[in-house]
């Protein structure tokens, strides 16, 4: 996408794996359109998306089904190309975390992280200590030799987070990463993510359909419309961290955003 993707990568490789990712510039999404299908009969999925994510900012992208949230992340992650418009991601390939942990079952937790380091060009001798540090960052210090099937759902997502952080990218994309977890585990992981985000200074672009989760986590919540996805509104969340999902302020803003989201959904019923 941008030349920065390749040039800055090597500089960043020398920085420590944990707690180092803050320095690079903003993610910039300008006039991005995405349509699927043949030209002429193409279905627009995203329409004129404009979004800036400051370095170290935590942005939640919120929307109902069909708003193209995942498509947008795929575009930013360079897994797909926009039909038109420009996306700039400074500081190397963005890390991407999925709803499924996507850990490789033939590797241990530690080796999963080491593979990410290896693919990034980290020398062999550095990989193990870095992997162990990353596991400690997600509070799984003893899990280095554990197989994926020996870990619980929440632990798997934490290893997946550690693996994403191993890419040492300044941008972390998260595609509903906690949607498949039970409420208690999700709550714990919200706390973990907030802590790790503030410790590492990484920019987070977090996609969810859960309004409360968005308000609980983000500094900014961006609401997308559905079919095609367009930016409808943008809220700053000024509630100080640490927040809890059951805080009154979180609930109040959630109600407001939910109203707007429902309005968007209703529009589709009337058409």
């Amino acid at each position: 996408m941008s030349p920065a993707l390749t040039t800055e990568k090597d500089d960043r490789a020398s920085t420590a794996a944990a707690g180092s990712a803050g320095a690079a510039g903003s993610v910039s999404i300008a006039h991005v359109h995405k349509a699927f299908g043949r030209p002429g009969a193409a279905q627009p999925v995203l329409e004129d998306i404009n979004l800036q994510v400051r370095p170290g900012e935590f942005v939640c992208i919120l929307g109902a089904s069909g708003c193209g949230k995942s498509t947008l992340l795929n575009l930013i992650a360079d897994l797909d190309k926009p039909t038109s418009g420009a996306i700039e991601v400074p500081g190397g390939r963005p890390a991407l975390m999925f709803q499924e942990h996507a850990l490789f079952p033939w590797l241990t937790a530690g080796k999963n992280i080491e593979l990410a380091l290896r693919l990034r060009g980290v020398p062999r001798a550095d990989r193990r200590p870095r992997a162990e540090r990353l596991l400690e960052l997600v509070r799984l210090g003893g899990a280095y030799g554990k197989r994926v099937h020996e870990l619980s759902g929440g632990m798997r997502q934490r290893v997946a987070l550690a693996r994403a952080l191993a890419q040492d990218s300044s941008v972390l994309l998260m595609d509903e990463p906690f949607a498949a977890l039970d409420a208690i585990t999700r709550d714990v992981l919200h706390e973990e993510l907030t802590r790790i985000w503030s410790e590492t200074g990484v920019s987070v672009l977090f996609v969810t359909h859960n309004v409360r989760e968005a308000v609980r986590l983000a500094e900014r919540v961006v609401l997308l419309s559905s079919r095609p996805g367009r930016v409808v509104r943008d809220w700053s969340v000024d509630i100080p961290q640490p927040r809890r999902i059951e805080d009154a302020a979180v609930a109040d803003l959630s109600v407001e955003i939910t109203e707007e989201l429902r309005g968007e959904i209703r529009r589709h019923g009337q058409q």
Partner: peptide, 17 residues
Amino acid sequence: TRGAAVEEADGGKRPTE
């Protein structure tokens, strides 16, 4: 794993609140 998760919940909490 459940044991670990509970431990997590305690450890992860900020002592501010």
